[in-house]
Design a protein around this nucleic acid. Structure first.
Lengths: 321, 321
DNA sequence: CATACATGTGTAATCGATTAACTACGCCCT
DNA sequence: AGGGCGTAGTTAATCGATTACACATGTATG
């Protein structure tokens, strides 16, 4: 910057003003400075700028697993929205581990992200409190924690799940296996709670860990116990369940019905195509980013609850919609 | 930091020494400083540290699309490897646009990443030169550019593709449709080149853009032209091709054979399961991160060429392996 | 006993920007 | 002519760390 100033015959303050579009400099001075910048190929050091201004134009996003297409879509949407507002996103992979999540959150705070988007691994509010105590804007995404005091953006699947449960019962299923998420996550509990409260004794719940392998195992248990329909509460566990069904040579929907929470582009291509509860992932990501940006700019955004939709496709034997 | 120093009755220099594990401070002083840090809940400002040391412990990763599971897997692997060495990864989504790619690369350089991992959108070497000119360590991943002078990490699919081509011919296919990537990407060209050089006139190539929609369109064109086998050179275009095949009510492999470059967890679950050329994505990501870290630490890592493997599954009508 | 040398700590410069406070200059008005 | 004022630009403090160098103290050496 000093070089640029010297080159243009002005002080660094003037260069800074030109760079930041302040009113002061004469058009003529501005020209000279811009020419010098061009000539020297100067690019401002974002670190120095951030140190001085205490704004990094960066958002932190801590998710459970980038390999889960659901989170990948969210990450993509967050990134898009953030970029359109001049922000970068640093993504941290917590790998469904509370410890790794905490490590990442702290790293991001150390790097002074302007705000943090978090998909909490458990519903323990400790980490959330820590962030809030540090005064860093925080928005929870997809999942919440006990007694959360910050904005939460999530999808509401209760309506869709209720409709799905009724349909399964209507189709004559009396033993329905639910492959739920971990009981210490809000989504893990809520989704299966909705479902079982409609079904009563007809539902049997096995908790997985939102990963493929646990989906297979849960499916195996439930099928052994005589389930005639399976509902996986996450796409990866759904993938696992599907694998187990195929491995046993069972036919959908004749031998067993299957529905999955989260849509995937390839679900319609299976035979039969899979019935799902589709979450508006892109809207969730964008909404979360918008809420966070609002929070950063001093507003108090409300919680956002988007609704998940039941998409009937045939894997539950239902007539097409 | 000043507060901590005061609290412990030492200077900031001593605090810094304790923080950085220098030999100097007495165990007793160290204790006092650590106690003060603990008590005040002090966390060092990474920006300030980076400004002073010119090291951010951060790698930049610019990929084409986070929604493409191939890149998501790579990103995940890069992140894992980097983290295990104490580095963070900032991911940039270029969306297959050279312009957005350039914007991201510059942003990352401004933020002074210690090194950059790039999956170039085109084989134009301009951007690569720009980075190299800035003296920032750079490693190319998956794709290369013309006259690249930096380390390149990629998968070699020529053997697998050759074997696949032979098999298709052996199975009696004489009109084989190739859904290739853009001709201005190294992977777009190389993969179809290998294929056509084995097949000669039996191959018909249509270039897509590595996205689902272009896969459907290319498939439609090729099927209309009488292709009895389709090979998609990327998983998203494969997904598109599969959609087109289903939409036309064609049966695999009876009516048409299909093979895809890139494996996906759900390919084995289709009926019939899809034959693929599987790239070692995790190893690619890890190797790229390792090469970059080596470059950062002053070494001169060699190019890495991992081999992609043909996985026969039935969608080309072949006998199982 | 003076000199040298090691050791632990403090002082202050530095990284590269932003910005409050100040200066210099020209213009207008009385 | 002199005072007031607006404007363009400079000087220097600052953000929060690291680290070269200086300094003080204690111990070994000739």
């Amino acid at each position: 910057m000093k070089d640029v100033a010297q080159h243009a015959g002005v002080s660094t303050a003037t260069v800074s003003r030109v760079l930041n579009g302040h009113a002061a400099p004469t058009p003529e001075t501005r020209e000279r400075v811009l020419a010098a910048i061009e000539e020297l190929g100067y690019r401002p050091n974002a670190l120095a700028r951030s140190l001085r201004t205490t704004s990094t134009q960066t958002l932190g996003l801590v998710i459970s697993d980038l390999l889960n297409p659901f989170f990948a879509e969210i990450a993509r949407a967050v990134e898009d929205e953030a970029r359109s507002h001049g922000y970068c996103v640093v993504i941290g992979n917590a790998d469904e581990s509370a410890e790794q999540e905490a490590t990442y959150v702290r790293t991001l705070l150390d790097r002074r992200v302007d705000g943090l988007l978090l998909c909490p691994a458990t519903d323990d509010p400790g980490l959330v409190r820590e962030v809030s105590a540090g005064g860093v804007p925080l928005v929870l995404l997809d999942r919440t924690v006990r007694g959360a005091t910050c904005p939460v953006v999530r999808a509401d699947g209760s309506e869709a799940l209720t409709a799905l449960a009724r349909r399964l019962v209507g189709a004559g299923h009396s033993r329905i296996g639910v492959i739920a998420g971990p009981p210490d996550t809000s989504t893990g509990r809520e989704r299966s709670d909705v479902f079982t409260s409609v079904l009563g004794g007809a539902a049997q719940v096995v908790h997985g860990d939102f990963r493929q392998e646990s989906g297979s195992q849960a499916a195996a248990r439930l099928i052994d116990d005589g389930a005639t329909a399976l509902v996986a509460m996450d796409n990866l566990m759904g993938l696992g369940a599907l694998g187990e069904i195929r491995a046993r040579g069972l036919h959908i929907p004749h031998d067993i019905a299957l529905a999955v929470f989260d849509d995937q582009p390839w679900f319609p291509l299976l035979d039969p195509p899979i019935t799902v509860v589709a979450q508006p992932t892109v809207e969730m990501g964008r909404a979360a980013a918008r809420s966070l940006l609002a929070l950063i700019s001093g507003q108090q955004p409300d919680d956002v609850r988007l609704t998940a939709k039941l998409v009937l496709r045939g894997s539950c034997g239902e007539a097409e919609l």
